[in-house]
Design a protein around this nucleic acid. Structure first.
Length: 570
RNA sequence: CGGGGCGUGGCCCAGUUGGUAGGGCACCUGUCUGGGGGACAGGAGAUCGCCAGUUCGAGUCUGGCCGCCCCGACCA
């Protein structure tokens, strides 16, 4: 490709909307162009890189036994009704109507559709396991797009689905995809770690995310400094500070005038936050839920949602609390069911049930209760781990480790779904005993645009992108200086032709620009190997080779140039 | 959706107490230059996000709307 023909222009300054390095470089190098929030067009160079990443993904998925298919973007809404996700999917589905007013969802994911394929194509355990995948556009009605390609409303996803006869077999399929992910992220030049994750609206049992750690990421990852356990902060299993065991003492009411917050109460009574019981009111699918957690901890809404069986969870505002007959700031799990005007469920964090003699609200303004104890004084409908992990918390998976927090971009996410889709959608096979059984499913996603952004986050310097060889839009960038002098232009043309004929992707800067402009663009565009053809070099019958990733360049004799370049880029 | 910020040639920005829009980069033509965004000369390109309103007069003031970015709740 000749730069003089390239349908792209580079920018000296990044557009003001771009803040993260990858976003700025994507725009400055002319890889993409924004059309609307979270919606981008790929320009020639960006699209080449994207396709190369896809190719690496294909190779690794194929190596793991995957078979590529292509499923429709338009999905009959009935499928979503059948799986029960039509209204519960977050973010809400983008739905279009055809001319007969029939509703079709723009696919945000393909569990429903792939199960339909399975139902027709597979009938026997002999045909299992099966791993199929596709790479194609997804649509999500995201609440907010972000960071250039990091979160999009229309994006390219590699989504894979496995079907197995039983859970043991699923574990193997899952591990195979896991291993292929490790390899492919390495091949495209992105360091990734696997972390325990919540399965979210996809559902299922085990789930892990692949995170590329970078400060521009949007997830908090907890990493234990001792045992290496890593988890998304919404999932992280932390050890709570334990209070010294104590014999329950008698409940005693104390006046706490003006004390509204946990800090107020603890300070007023001269105790630590950990000796108090915090009450938080949530609406779960519009039903009131009283959440009890120890005062030094915070509620993790993801864990809470899971404890409540996937309900839509949000905090109640003061008006709603009052309307329900509850007292914000002095709420107590003792007698809350009686005090409330509506039936209220009580959810307790393990911290609240394991600690003795806590200070809780008295369900009336200005008063609290001392020595409140679980079981004796109050009971919960659900007891679970619903507390949020923080930096510095003790790791629950080992002794003595503490969490540090890193930001990460979620570039992949894998799930052991089990039968959460095959059951409602009736995807069964016949086992060796001739019995109908539901297939055990796994699903595996990679955000391809997001991976491209991560590649750039991980491989750039102040001058521009430094493409890994594996996915560079072009392997070689030829720069001519003084193309009209001493055979420079002719030599460069010849190199361009010969390298291209060898199947090497060559970007040829044949413009009449000054050396500074050409070198700056070569650095910005970031192809792995630069060849400089100039009168100075030709005087020595040589051309200059420079790797983008290194500072030094070398002169190689013209006669050997093609051969040397071919060696370097293979 | 809540909070914050910003919309002026393709990109980055300036525009005073309201008086009819300017610079840099990029672009076109020419000359020179030629190893890190070079110089000179001459050009083209804007209904100042949109719609109302105030005013003799609005980029500037008022109201409404739209768009984009950032933080948060969600996700590949």
């Amino acid at each position: 490709m000749r730069i003089s023909n390239l349908f792209t222009r580079t920018l000296r300054e990044a557009p003001s909307e771009a803040e993260t390095p990858s976003h700025q470089l994507l725009l400055r190098a002319g890889l993409v162009q924004q059309l609307a929030a979270g919606i981008y067009a790929y320009l020639p160079l960006g699209y080449r890189a994207l396709r190369k990443i896809e190719q690496v993904i294909r190779e690794e998925m194929d190596a793991a036994g995957g078979q590529e298919v292509s499923m429709p973007l338009l999905q009959p809404i009935e499928l979503w009704e059948a799986s029960g996700r039509r209204d519960s999917y977050v973010p809400p589905l983008l739905v279009v109507k055809d001319r007969r007013e029939r509703e079709l969802a723009l696919g945000p994911t393909h569990e429903e559709v792939v199960v339909e394929l399975f139902k027709k194509q597979v009938q026997s355990y002999r045909e299992l396991p099966a791993l199929i995948y596709q790479i194609q556009t997804k649509f999500r009605n995201e609440l907010r797009s972000r960071g250039g390609l990091i979160r999009l409303r229309e994006f390219v996803m590699k989504d894979a689905y496995s079907f197995d006869a039983d859970w043991e077999s699923l574990d193997k399929s899952y591990d195979a995809v896991f291993a292929s992910y490790v390899k492919l992220f390495e091949r495209v030049g992105v360091a990734a770690i696997a972390v325990d994750a919540d399965s979210g609206p996809i559902g299922g049992k085990d789930s892990q995310e692949f995170m590329h750690l970078t400060e521009v990421g949007e997830d908090d990852v907890m990493i234990c400094d001792n045992c290496g356990y890593a988890a998304n902060s919404e999932k992280a299993d932390h050890r709570r500070q334990t209070l010294p065991p104590a014999e329950p003492e008698d409940v005693e009411e104390v006046a706490t005038p003006g004390a509204k917050t946990i800090d107020d109460v603890a300070t007023f009574l001269g105790i630590s936050n950990a000796q108090t019981l915090k009450a938080v009111f949530y609406a779960a699918d519009k039903e009131p839920v009283f959440v009890a957690i120890r005062g030094d901890l915070e509620v993790n809404e993801t864990k809470l949602r899971n404890a409540l069986g996937g309900a839509d969870v949000r905090m109640m505002d003061d008006k709603e609390v009052t309307a329900a007959g509850l007292v914000a700031g002095s709420a107590s799990p003792m007698g809350v069911k009686e005090a409330s005007k509506r039936p209220v469920r009580v959810v307790a964090d393990k911290s609240a049930t394991a600690s003795a003699n806590l200070v809780a609200g008295a369900n009336k303004e200005g008063f609290h209760l001392r020595n409140v104890n679980y079981e004796r004084d109050w009971q919960a409908d659900i007891v679970a781990d619903i507390s949020l992990a923080h930096e510095g918390d003790a790791c629950a998976r080992c002794d003595g480790g503490t969490f540090k927090v890193e930001r990460g971009i979620e570039i992949g996410h894998i799930f052991k779904l089990g039968t959460v889709y095959t059951e409602p959608l009736g995807a069964t096979f016949l086992d060796a005993e001739g019995k109908q059984r539901e297939a055990v499913m796994g699903c595996y996603g990679i955000g391809v645009d997001r991976l491209l952004a991560s590649v750039i986050e991980a491989n750039h310097d102040e001058n521009g992108i430094i493409w890994p060889q594996s996915i560079a839009p072009f392997a070689v960038h030829i720069v001519t200086l003084n193309a009209d002098k001493e055979g420079v232009g002719e030599t460069a043309e010849r190199l361009y032709t010969e390298l291209s004929e060898r199947g090497i992707d060559v970007l040829f800067d044949d413009r009449e620009e000054s050396p500074g402009v050409k070198f700056a663009d070569a650095d910005l565009l970031g192809m792995p190997l630069r060849i400089t053809v100039s009168p100075r070099n030709l005087k020595q019958d040589s051309v200059e080779l420079k790797r983008r990733s290194e500072d030094d360049s070398t002169l190689v004799p013209l006669a050997e140039a093609v051969e040397r370049v071919a060696e370097l880029v293979q």
